[in-house]
Design a protein around this nucleic acid. Structure first.
Lengths: 136, 136
DNA sequence: ATTGCATTTGCAAATTTTTGCATTATTTTT
DNA sequence: AAAAATAATGCAAAAATTTGCAAATGCAAT
């Protein structure tokens, strides 16, 4: 794998946005400022390589688009509430031992470093078990 | 949530294929036999509901498409090798305790019931650390 | 059975993502 | 430094997925 200006620019864009989650097309838009002739497919392919290299993580948060984020230390993961859309960030310490166990059991070297788990947050659990009564 | 013929038909199609992984469009094709006027968007939306209900699981295996599978007991998960594409199936017993810990720690009720983890299988690990020498 | 309401569906259009291929860059070899 | 080999890029087209909206359907309460 060789040096790619696009990859560097993508990392820079992600860092510039405070390492928040951006979609491929959002990254593409921001990239056009410095690389006017860039094509969307190039962004998709560069993101794919960055992901393979472990520099970027992919998050399908249940929106209609895939989001990308720069991988930094410490690693983190997310819980996404399917009720209210809230996103909780969880520390890698909760996940690391599980990953290690998988690697040992299956002689597998994990590249996934960013887990997205869906479910219901406490508030939405309460709401779904006790539906709101109609207004008095 | 009410009764939907499309949802029932989808479950039937998935069961008929031996509960293998099918893409939304593959399901759509098979559905057209019995529901000639069905639209792709209907399949996507029905799959989304089935997923929310925990009856179907979603797998992005790294191909260009999302795959769907009927959820059955016992639950299982997958390790996908990014080197050779091989898919290992792992038992839920490896994952259950981890899920339970997350639920307790964050008062979160997980709906995710099918994990896809990427990495390198043993063979591909060996290959990547010791690149094959050119043929003699 | 009929009515009223909320959900699901089909269709068309918009978006997002992937793919094939020729060209351009970068690295490696000579 | 050239040449050869390999990987990245741009472009256009294809494929996959999402969205808006009106019509159809299922459910519950008459």
């Amino acid at each position: 794998m060789r040096q790619s200006s696009v990859q560097l620019a993508i990392l820079d864009v992600l860092a510039g946005e405070g390492d928040s989650h951006l979609s491929a097309l959002e990254i593409y838009e921001r990239l056009k400022a410095r690389l006017p002739a860039i094509a969307p497919s190039t962004v998709y392919r560069a993101l794919e390589r960055l992901t393979q290299q472990g520099l970027v993580s992919v998050s399908d948060m249940g929106k209609g688009v895939t989001l990308y984020e720069r991988v930094g230390q410490p690693l983190h993961h997310h819980l996404v509430c399917t009720g209210c859309g809230q996103v909780l960030t969880i520390d890698h310490s909760q996940v690391g031992p599980f990953f290690a166990a998988i690697e040992n059991t299956y002689a597998f070297r994990l590249q996934t470093n960013h887990l997205i788990l869906f479910g219901l947050c406490r508030a939405c659990q309460a709401q779904s078990s006790t539906p709101l009564p109609p207004e008095a």
